[in-house]
């Protein structure tokens, strides 16, 4: 990737001021203990998702686009028409998806660069894998569909939100698909499983803690993202981080399956509304 030298990159090694805030180890531990006792800072139940707002057709230039918002997590997905795969010598029978997942520079507590970093690249790859099994790729051989995700504000569960929104955007763009795709995130700390975690909860669930003050063994902790094609009951992406045992994982799959099912009617309604609106507009003209 050629470096973009027209942009001011900011100082090379700057340090977030947040690190100098007076936070002791105990405050982190007490927060984790709160989570373990099923108390969430925003008062939600552990298996309660935040309210989702969905809208499609937000970018007029794009073939399909969607806006996704849960509380403070806000993101835009746009999908552009199929175009020939650039720099490709051989013919591929199946079309391809090209995903770019990007956090806006101002979307996270720490500033993000303009170029994709390792995490964003990994998220792009996960999205690509998740969406590829939802799209009828044989319908556009040797072509690629571009999917761009821009996270405007990140307050946790951005990746699963992006997958859900990308499903809507692809549908609006008229890309042939097998099914609607929905996705949800689950964060685990100890025996507590938090659905749709916020950024803070995500951070707390990546820390390994001791089972209790007396024991030396570590408790389970981790984050799981699951994307599913709901009518076909096909899991198109399963991604887990942390340290979990088989039972926890099995329980989590059931929780996430239910959570993703709850999102499906919202996605359908969003698309139906869009179709109705377009028909009405066409009828009037």
């Amino acid at each position: 990737m050629p470096t973009d030298n027209k942009r001011i990159a900011g100082p090379e090694d700057s340090i977030s001021y947040r690190l100098f805030k007076e936070t002791s180890n105990e405050s982190v531990l007490s927060k984790i203990n709160n989570l373990k006792n099923n108390i969430r800072s925003d008062g939600r139940k552990t298996n309660e998702q935040r309210k989702i707002f969905l809208k499609c057709g937000v970018v007029s230039q794009a073939k399909g686009s969607a806006y996704f918002e849960v509380d403070n997590t806000k993101l835009i997905v746009s999908v552009y028409d199929p175009r020939e795969i650039p720099k490709k010598t051989d013919y591929s029978l199946k079309g391809e998806l090209f995903c770019i997942f990007k956090y806006a520079p101002f979307s996270c507590p720490n500033r993000r660069g303009h170029q994709q970093d390792a995490e964003e690249k990994q998220h792009s790859a996960i999205m690509k894998r998740a969406l590829e099994s939802a799209v009828c790729r044989h319908e556009f051989p040797n072509f690629q569909v571009d999917v761009y995700v821009l996270v405007l504000e990140n307050d946790g569960s951005a990746l699963s939100g992006a997958i859900t929104a990308a499903g809507i955007a692809l549908a609006q763009a008229g890309i042939p698909m097998y099914d609607t795709i929905t996705s949800a995130t689950l964060a685990i700390q100890g025996s507590t499983k938090l659905l749709d975690p916020t950024l803070e909860e995500e951070a707390l669930c990546t820390i390994a803690t001791h089972k209790s003050d007396t024991e030396t063994g570590y408790d389970s902790h981790g984050i799981i993202v699951l994307a599913i094609l709901s009518t076909h009951e096909q899991i198109s992406e399963f991604y887990q981080l942390g340290n979990l045992n088989l039972d926890t994982l099995n329980e989590s799959i059931s929780i996430l399956m239910n959570a993703t099912k709850e999102i499906v009617p919202l996605v359908e309604k969003c698309l139906v509304d869009y179709v109705n609106k377009t028909f009405k507009a066409n009828g009037q003209s």
Partner: peptide
């Protein structure tokens, strides 16, 4: 040590939940 640290899918394709388990 009998615990999962990462699970991911490689390549495209999808699974039924029972197959996943």
């Amino acid at each position: 040590q009998d615990r999962f640290t990462t699970v991911l899918q490689s390549g495209s394709g999808s699974l039924h939940p029972s197959t996943l388990r």
